[in-house]
Every structure is written in structure tokens, then in C-alpha cells.
């Protein structure tokens, strides 16, 4: 990863170019922050989905258990209830691997954003020091 501002060339920049470098850094900081906000929203959505599917799973297992208990007594209705719960659980189970991959990709990008934001902060410090030196 490259520093947004090269340390060696800072001193040789004109005042106008130093201001442009500062504006570029400011723009980059805003872009990174807005990307982090989008990723954070996506993770919040995943969290809500997990909670919802967790509830569905518990409900599904309860219906399954009831289906088995009621099976011999209520006959076919118990089995239908259990099969319904079984059908509800399959899509969630199938999607699980892709959601985990999505969450991991988001977390990895967030780590990159944190590193880039730290680099931008360092570069801003250098620009500020150079400006004060002048």
C-alpha cells in the first residue's frame, strides 16, 4: 500500500500543491469513512438476519419435536408440521456458507480501511507539519 503523500516530495511542493495534497487526503478520508459506514450497515443487516433465522431455527426445531411427539397420535398432521419445519430450515442452511463468506469479506475490507485511514492520518500529520514549517 502506498502512502497518499510521498514524504520526500512534500518539502519540494509549492504552497498550492501542498494545499491540493491536503484536499486529496481530506477527500480520501471522507471516501473511506463513507465506505466503512456502508460496510457497517451491511454487517448490521447480517446481524438482524442471524437473529431472525436463529428464532426460525428454534421454532423449527420445536415444531419438528412436536411433529414427532404428535406423529403417532395426530397421524399425518404431525408429520406434515414436521416436514414444513424441515422445509423452512433448508434454505437457511444452504445460504449459511455464502453469508459467512460475505461477512468475512466485509470484515477484511474493514481491516484494510482501518489501515488506510491510519496512513491518511499519518500523511495529514506530515502535511500539517510541513505547512507549519513554512
Amino acid at each position: 500500500m502506498k502512502l497518499p503523500v510521498s514524504v520526500q516530495t512534500l518539502a519540494s511542493l509549492s504552497d498550492e500543491k501542498l494545499l491540493h495534497a491536503a484536499l486529496d487526503l481530506e477527500r480520501r478520508r471522507k471516501d473511506l469513512k463513507s465506505e466503512a459506514r456502508d460496510l457497517s450497515r451491511s454487517l448490521k443487516r447480517q446481524e438482524e438476519r442471524l437473529r431472525r433465522e436463529g428464532g426460525m431455527l428454534v421454532g423449527g426445531i420445536a415444531v419438528m419435536a412436536l411433529g414427532f411427539i404428535a406423529g403417532p397420535v395426530a397421524g399425518i398432521l404431525g408429520w406434515i408440521a414436521a416436514a414444513g419445519a424441515f422445509g423452512l430450515l433448508i434454505p437457511g442452511t444452504m445460504q449459511s456458507a455464502s453469508s459467512i463468506a460475505d461477512i468475512r469479506a466485509d470484515a477484511q475490507r474493514l481491516n484494510q480501511i482501518a489501515v488506510e485511514l491510519n496512513l491518511v492520518a499519518d500523511a495529514m500529520g506530515l502535511v500539517a507539519a510541513e505547512r507549519r514549517r513554512r
Binding site: 457497517s40 456458507a97 470484515a107 480501511i113 492520518a121 500529520g125
Partner: peptide, 30 residues
């Protein structure tokens, strides 16, 4: 599957905290 997703989300929570700290630092530098 749910347990693995909960684990992945909890490690993503750490990344969110890391970004929040980096954002605060970049805000100060700005």
C-alpha cells in the same frame, strides 16, 4: 451454520472497532 455466522460476525465487530479508532485518529489529524 448459525454458530459459524455468529463467530464471523463477532470477529467483524472487532474490525468495526478498529475502523472506529482509525476514523477518530483521522478526524483529529484532519
Amino acid at each position: 451454520g448459525l454458530w459459524r455466522r455468529a463467530n464471523a460476525l463477532s470477529s467483524a465487530g472487532l474490525s468495526l472497532e478498529r475502523v472506529a479508532l482509525a476514523e477518530a485518529r483521522a478526524d483529529l489529524a484532519s
